[in-house]
Nucleic acid binder design. Structure first.
Ligand SMILES: [Zn+2]
Ligand SMILES: [Zn+2]
Ligand SMILES: [Zn+2]
Ligand SMILES: [Zn+2]
Lengths: 155, 155
DNA sequence: TATATTATGTTATAACATAACAATTAGCAA
DNA sequence: TTGCTAATTGTTATGTTATAACATAATATA
């Protein structure tokens, strides 16, 4: 059985080969941990899981380096507002994003990677750049409460 | 001579009195440091400046508590993407903001607190909340290069 | 003044991140 | 294959950001 995680891992592997990046065994395992996680993980969370899942040690230093690699390869994003890392939702699909956008639930800590409309992003960019400021491709991190948590509350 | 910083400090003081908050001497000094700073400061930067400027010690613990107070009083904002603090630009004016928005120059590190149009924010909010997600009032932090730095580069 | 509340001091420690250098492994040309 | 080079990972130390826990001081108010 090939599930979504395996498909993502294969896609990641082939994409890295294609662009000359080396998705080593350990890097791949870090990505797998993030793909399997229900929530974003801190670097030290990843170290712990690595030991548990693969019965192999990983120093924090190495974890940070592997996360840097995975971020450069666009396979992983960092949430700057919580110092946590998560796998990109778009590894297995063809859909690319210039500007990742995240909705972060402050109750259950799940994160949804969304795609705001091109039109809206264009307006946002236009409005900002009219002040003379030129945006780099910084992601949007928006905090709030997800639908599931709201439903639970109103029960 | 009453400059903008003094006016802001007075306004902060009167606003706190009005709402029953206590803007103590030390809290006021922390605010003053942030008002005088050209860039956002880390908590530990503030501790250092406190010693230099006022020849008085301040523990990191106290600095964090004072920053918490100042943020609750809406006098100071925290940049979550860089773990730094800055005075609100709107202390001395009447203009209120629900959602602070920052343009952060990654070259000179200056930060501009802007106000995006109500219309644009409404569209953004609408687009997000159509997914069932309810936003809390999280600020927008956008990174890029400011006009001054761009001018310098193209010289 | 007595009492409660708030603010600040102090120490320790947790959590997040990088620097510096050594050892190992993978890629590749001779 | 061998030896060279560059990339990866290991190791240790340290820097940076933030909070916990408990003591003391200042302030408000009854
Ligand atoms: Zn993504
Ligand atoms: Zn939720
Ligand atoms: Zn503000
Ligand atoms: Zn600049």
């Amino acid at each position: 059985m090939t599930n979504k995680i395996d498909i993502s891992l294969q896609k990641a592997q082939s994409e890295c080969s294609r662009t000359g990046l080396r998705l080593t065994d350990k890097r791949c395992k870090v990505l797998k941990i993030l793909l399997q996680a229900a929530e974003p993980l801190s670097a030290y969370d990843i170290v712990d899981q690595f030991k548990q899942v693969f019965a192999e040690s990983l120093s924090a230093m190495s974890a940070y380096r592997m996360l840097d690699f995975l971020m450069q390869a666009n396979l992983v994003h960092k949430l700057e507002t919580s110092n946590q890392y998560l796998a990109c939702s778009h590894i297995s699909c063809e859909h690319n994003h210039e500007l990742p956008q995240f909705l972060i639930c402050d109750q259950c800590h799940t994160v949804k990677e969304i795609g705001l409309s091109k039109q809206l992003l264009k307006e946002l960019r236009g409005s900002i750049e009219s002040t003379g400021f030129v945006l780099s491709s910084q992601q949007l991190e928006l905090h709030g409460v997800c639908e599931a948590c709201r439903a639970k509350q109103s029960e």
